[in-house]
Amino acid sequence: MLKIRLYDPAQRQQEKERQRALDAAALQSGQVSPDQLRVSNGFLSSLEVIDSSIACKEVFS
């Protein structure tokens, strides 16, 4: 029988906060470089958010 898991936004937020704290500690201690952390955190992490932008061109008739 399949197990059904419910998504709990509060629990997910806590998990993300814990991971960010671990990432910050690893960076501060020199265990990982910013590039290593970016790679390990997934494909979206490779984006340079500071140098990125979102453009929306609306066409009004």
Rank of each mutant, 00 (worst) to 15 (best):
Q11C: 03
L27G: 08
A21G: 02
L44V: 03
R12Q: 09
V59K: 06
F60M: 03
F60P: 01
K3P: 01
Q14A: 15
P34S: 14
V39F: 07
E48D: 15
Q36T: 05
I50R: 14
R20A: 14
R12S: 09
P9S: 07
Q14P: 00
S46P: 01
E15C: 08
L27Q: 04
L27I: 04
V32S: 05
A55V: 14
R5W: 08
Q11H: 11
F43Y: 01
P9W: 06
D8Q: 11
L2A: 14
R38W: 04
R38S: 15
I54Q: 10
I50Q: 12
D8W: 14
V59T: 11
V39K: 14
V59G: 04
Q14Y: 10
R12I: 07
Q14R: 13
A26K: 02
Q14E: 15
E58I: 13
L2W: 11
S33M: 02
V59A: 10
S46N: 13
I54W: 04
Y7N: 14
A25Q: 00
K16P: 02
E15F: 13
L44Y: 06
A26F: 00
R20F: 04
A26Q: 01
Y7P: 02
I4K: 05
Q13D: 10
M1E: 14
L22H: 08
A26M: 02
S40G: 05
L2C: 09
L2R: 14
A25N: 00
V32M: 05
R5Y: 10
P34A: 15
A25M: 01
L44E: 01
N41Y: 03
Q11T: 14
Q31H: 09
V32H: 01
Q13N: 10
G30I: 03
M1G: 13
R38Q: 14
Q13S: 13
R20I: 07
L47Y: 15
S53R: 10
R12K: 11
R18G: 02
A10H: 15
I50W: 13
S61N: 06
A26L: 02
V49T: 15
A10T: 15
S45M: 03
Q31I: 09
D51S: 12
N41L: 06
L47N: 11
Q14N: 10
E17I: 10
D8G: 09
E58S: 05
G30S: 08
S61G: 05
F43S: 02
K16Y: 12
R38H: 11
Q13F: 08
L44D: 06
E15G: 12
S40A: 13
M1Y: 12
L37K: 11
A10V: 15
F60I: 07
Q11W: 04
Q28E: 08
M1T: 08
R38T: 13
D35L: 04
S46M: 13
R38Y: 04
S61E: 06
S29T: 06
Q19N: 04
A55Y: 11
S45D: 06
G42A: 00
